[in-house]
Simulated scan of single mutants.
Amino acid sequence: MDARFLGIGDLAETPSVAVVVDVMRACTVAAWAFARGAEKIVLAESLEEALALKDRHPDWVALKDDPPAPGFDAVNSPGLLRSVDLGGRTVVQKTTAGTVGALAVKDASLVLCAGFVVAEATARLLRTRGGDSVTFVVTGEDGRAEEDLACAQYIAGRAIGAVTDAAGYLRRAADSRAAGELTRGVRQGAHPDDVALCLELDRFPFAMVATPEGPLMVLRPLDVPAGTAGSGGVVDR
């Protein structure tokens, strides 16, 4: 498998297969939303679109970066989301990096969103559906975010079946600028446990697949059991 690691701004053409990586925190938050029962996540292009969708669908849960704001129900924090009951709900997510990266490759034949919490399931899916070339979209810091690059490189290694020690990759992420900012409380709308939750390797057994549904880009969980990679279906709740 030929793996490329590009920032959002470096995407000169639509890749065939794209893995969008945002460890801290959009993709981790998405995984937690599914773990808390969410049926699907709509990836919004702007805060205005997120609010408009919420206005049309009052039962949907609108989520954004930074501190709470009128019209939004939650913020982009796994620590704050882990106690929320989202059973059967639709989440609308708008963040500064993760959702932007997913929408930038929306025309790819396969779009996955990933972080360390779903790394192995993502790698298993790539083994059967990834093809010869996979583009990893390193969303943070214009493609330079160390936590996203470390996660992308780890998943790429696992996707080709390499016996890869995760410790070094997790250490790089823990020492990243984003982790430092979250630890020091620089970023608003955060929880003290956010960094630790973002670095929980393989916490969840599903991959996350984004596909167009009408005019919207929608993320859903895909169960990928060990030993039967790629044969699972959408997680049955």
Rank of each mutant, 00 (worst) to 15 (best):
R203A: 14
P215Q: 10
D65C: 01
A179P: 03
E213Q: 15
P67M: 07
A102R: 12
D66G: 13
L222G: 11
A173V: 09
F136R: 00
R171I: 02
V137A: 04
V138W: 10
G71S: 08
E39D: 15
E147T: 05
A173D: 09
R129I: 06
F34K: 08
K40I: 13
Y169K: 04
K106I: 07
R36Y: 13
R36D: 15
A190Q: 13
P70F: 03
L219T: 00
D59M: 04
P225G: 10
L201K: 04
A33N: 05
T211F: 09
G87C: 01
L182V: 05
F34Y: 15
L126V: 08
A50R: 02
L201Q: 03
R203H: 13
D132N: 08
G101P: 02
L112Q: 07
L170E: 01
R56N: 13
P58L: 00
D132T: 09
G130T: 10
A207K: 14
G168N: 06
G87Q: 05
D66K: 13
R237T: 04
G140P: 08
A31E: 15
V75T: 04
D22E: 04
T228Y: 08
D55C: 03
D85C: 01
A31F: 06
A114P: 12
H57R: 14
C151N: 09
L53H: 05
V17E: 00
L219S: 09
D148Y: 04
S46Y: 03
L6I: 14
A123L: 06
L170F: 10
A190L: 02
I41G: 03
A26H: 08
L63F: 09
G98V: 10
L197I: 00
L199A: 01
M1A: 07
G9M: 06
A31Y: 10
G143Y: 14
V163N: 15
D10S: 12
I155G: 03
D22L: 06
F72E: 01
F204I: 05
D73I: 04
A26Q: 05
K40D: 15
V186S: 08
P67T: 03
A167K: 13
R187N: 10
A31H: 09
P215Y: 06
L201I: 04
L126E: 04
D10A: 15
R187K: 13
C113T: 15
V17C: 07
G71I: 00
